[in-house]
Design a protein around this nucleic acid. Structure first.
Lengths: 187, 187
DNA sequence: TGCTGGTTTTGACAATAGTCAAAAAATAAC
DNA sequence: GTTATTTTTTGACTATTGTCAAAACCAGCA
């Protein structure tokens, strides 16, 4: 909990008052490697703060698992579309390592929005950050060759390469595992 | 102006009070085809509502123009990264048709956030929508073949195909103009 | 009607990436 | 330390897409 609050204070200017309020709104969750945080077809009703561990978001396409994002320490994670719209999730979230998470329900969060302008602001700012991140990722992914994408990953997010099996990384980069292996051989 | 307010009322539950406030915060801008709304290297200080017309966001990569998004009627547009961080823009926004826009400055918007919780909420909700849209676009773009991407464009956003020159569309899909032409030939 | 500039298509060939199958390497299990 | 099991790499071949150059198409307009 301390880590979540510290993160919010550092990156979102959380006030002492809001801190007191938030303290009681999150619930600790501990899950083991390979367990699912969200399953496709189910509505995702929580937003999670990832204190410790690593996980991935993926969906199934023609029997293949397509990993399209990763989460690590200090990330807020959820099945975004499902959490926002309260429609069944199209994606799965699975742990790549044992994780410690803090969960807040959509209802609790909505209640906080109504009572505390500051907390809605905090989320608005989080959206800005995550939007920019996604936009960068989009441009990177879409307009570069397999080799360039991997090099960009090494440069900008080396922790992904260090902690994630290559099978997930190739999927994340939108290339086959074999091509990734060859790209790595060339470097 | 009516159109902007109507859009906000319909899709963002804008209250009558907030409507009165917002009315005076936007400035009308009329620009001709091919003019630039944002130029790379300059800080983008405004958020725009596109009342009429069509435009594109693009950046330069090895001397080539990469179009990575389009804007149409009722879209909020800006050089997102630049507007948020107030760093120089890496992208250009150019009009594909003559446009009518309504501009609000970052400072004005920030002032509104401080005074009206409801307006910050409105923007928070806008972020949600735009984030989901981008996420869908990301998945579509990244994990499908050239043909599938074009078909998906036809299916989900046919107005793009109708109003945008093929050269921009191919760039948007991340494929060459020739490949797009051949894909179209096959359908 | 016939230029003119731009856009779109076609053709030939090269480069890139995917697929399937098997080998090698790395982990985990006993 | 020796098996299993999983992950990663390699090889041969195929499919997809890109590149360059030329042709066709399509306005707008003298």
């Amino acid at each position: 909990m301390q880590q979540l609050l510290a993160h919010l204070k550092t990156f979102y200017q959380l006030s002492a008052e809001a801190e007191l309020v938030l303290k009681d709104c999150f619930e600790e969750i501990i899950l083991a490697k390979n367990e699912f945080l969200v399953k496709e077809g189910k509505v995702c009703r929580h937003l999670y703060f990832l204190q410790q561990g690593a996980l991935r978001g993926f969906y199934n396409l023609d029997g293949k698992e397509i990993t399209h994002w990763f989460g690590f320490e200090n990330d807020f994670v959820t099945s975004f579309h499902s959490f926002t719209t309260q429609q069944p999730s199209v994606e799965n979230i699975q742990l790549m390592e044992g994780c410690i998470l803090w969960a807040i329900s959509k209802d609790t969060l909505t209640g906080l929005f109504n009572r505390y302008h500051e907390i809605e602001r905090l989320v608005r700012i989080a959206y800005e950050k995550y939007y920019i991140r996604l936009e960068e990722r989009y441009v990177n992914a879409h307009f570069k060759t397999a080799g360039e994408r991997y090099e960009s990953l090494l440069l900008h997010t080396p922790h992904i390469v260090e902690r994630v099996p290559l099978g997930f990384i190739s999927s994340y980069l939108g290339i086959s595992q074999e091509t990734l292996s060859r790209v790595r051989g060339r470097l």
